[in-house]
Simulated assay, not measured.
Amino acid sequence: MQLYNKLSADERALLIDKAGKDRITISFYQYHKIENPTIFRNELFVAWEKLDVLGRTYVSYEGINAQISVPAENFEKLRDQLYSISFLNNIRLNVAIEQNNKSFLKLTIKVRDKIVADGLDDESFDVTSIGTHVSAKEFNQLLDDENTVLVDMRNHYESEIGHFDGAITPDVDTFRESLPIIEDDLKEHKEDKNLVMYCTGGIRCEKASAYFKHKGFKNVFQLEGGIIEYVRQIKTESLENKFIGKNFVFDERRAEKVSEDVIASCHQCGEPFDVHTNCANDACHLLFIQCPSCAEKMDNCCSSECQEIVQLPLEKQKELRKGKANSNKIFKKGRSEALKFKK
């Protein structure tokens, strides 16, 4: 039985075009003790492949974290399949703000130690003692309270293109880096301030809220469903939008527009721009912001060194990459010294 994807991204893209069907991009997560993540993972793969589900999903002993797309005609079947799983019954499915049939080009379901790399010792505190979930309306009301401290639990490259007005946006590369920084910065306000957190879909805040309560913060709140659900609620309930710019997403779309504001700038020339791209040099693949003018001038590369490499024959490029591990040491996110206007 096939339990892994066999098609390349290009092959899958052609199949999507040929099918001519609209797809829906969704995300969801659930913390739950899964006795055998490998068996659960395999069962999911078989069920989802039948429904033509694509995307990236992590399964662990602590639960599931999924970002996927499905043909619109199969959405209800997918929902029914998820609801048939006891701990996923009536799970909230965050539907993307903006749809793109090629948001994902293959189905990947991986077993991980954790569904989010938080670096926390879960045995040291009660992970179920989470903060108070608040709706978009309640969230806006908290932001109007002078005793509220609003914290963005995402990474620098996410908040750079969009964030809530007045939010603290830690300059970090990973979620685990932000936790001790936030605790230290707000240690004088553990009892007299409302600690309000948000992230893309809510999963990072779920664990962080329990962590900060364990650390002595008395009034901890988290935006229910994250930015994605917030945008849905402000539209359906005609609420004031307090988010400026774009919401970064981890698929081929890279971002969803929430407001017309452009708050970032091209990392190479400094002109206002907020679209991320990856360096064309596959040995670099740096994620950075590049305007069309710089893309043309630099051949979609982040530096002159990478530009020289992409001019070489493909076989020579492969030879230069040989033996180099594709890790976070290579796939950085906007931290290259070659970028003059990086955050």
Score class of each variant (00 low, 15 high):
residue 1 M to R: 00
residue 8 S to K: 05
residue 14 L to A: 14
residue 14 L to C: 03
residue 23 R to N: 10
residue 25 T to C: 14
residue 25 T to M: 11
residue 26 I to E: 00
residue 28 F to M: 07
residue 36 N to L: 05
residue 41 R to Q: 15
residue 52 D to A: 10
residue 53 V to M: 08
residue 59 V to E: 07
residue 66 A to L: 09
residue 70 V to K: 03
residue 70 V to F: 08
residue 79 R to K: 13
residue 80 D to C: 10
residue 81 Q to Y: 14
residue 83 Y to S: 15
residue 90 N to T: 11
residue 94 N to I: 00
residue 96 A to Y: 14
residue 97 I to V: 12
residue 100 N to G: 07
residue 100 N to Q: 09
residue 110 K to V: 04
residue 112 R to N: 08
residue 116 V to G: 05
residue 119 G to L: 06
residue 119 G to C: 03
residue 120 L to H: 11
residue 122 D to A: 02
residue 124 S to I: 09
residue 126 D to Q: 06
residue 130 I to C: 10
residue 131 G to E: 10
residue 132 T to S: 00
residue 137 K to D: 14
residue 138 E to G: 07
residue 138 E to P: 08
residue 141 Q to M: 14
residue 141 Q to W: 00
residue 149 V to H: 09
residue 150 L to N: 07
residue 150 L to M: 05
residue 151 V to K: 15
residue 153 M to T: 13
residue 155 N to Q: 02
residue 157 Y to C: 01
residue 162 G to I: 04
residue 164 F to D: 03
residue 167 A to S: 12
residue 172 V to K: 07
residue 173 D to H: 14
residue 180 P to Q: 13
residue 182 I to T: 11
residue 184 D to V: 01
residue 191 E to Y: 12
residue 194 N to W: 09
residue 195 L to K: 01
residue 196 V to A: 04
residue 203 I to W: 04
residue 220 V to G: 02
residue 228 I to R: 07
residue 233 Q to N: 03
residue 235 K to G: 02
residue 241 N to S: 03
residue 242 K to R: 14
residue 243 F to K: 05
residue 259 S to M: 11
residue 259 S to E: 13
residue 265 S to F: 09
residue 269 C to P: 10
residue 291 C to T: 00
residue 294 C to F: 12
residue 295 A to R: 15
residue 298 M to G: 02
residue 301 C to V: 02
residue 315 E to S: 08
residue 319 E to M: 05
residue 320 L to Q: 06
residue 320 L to C: 00
residue 321 R to F: 01
residue 326 N to F: 00
residue 327 S to Q: 04
residue 330 I to P: 01
residue 332 K to Y: 06
residue 341 F to N: 14
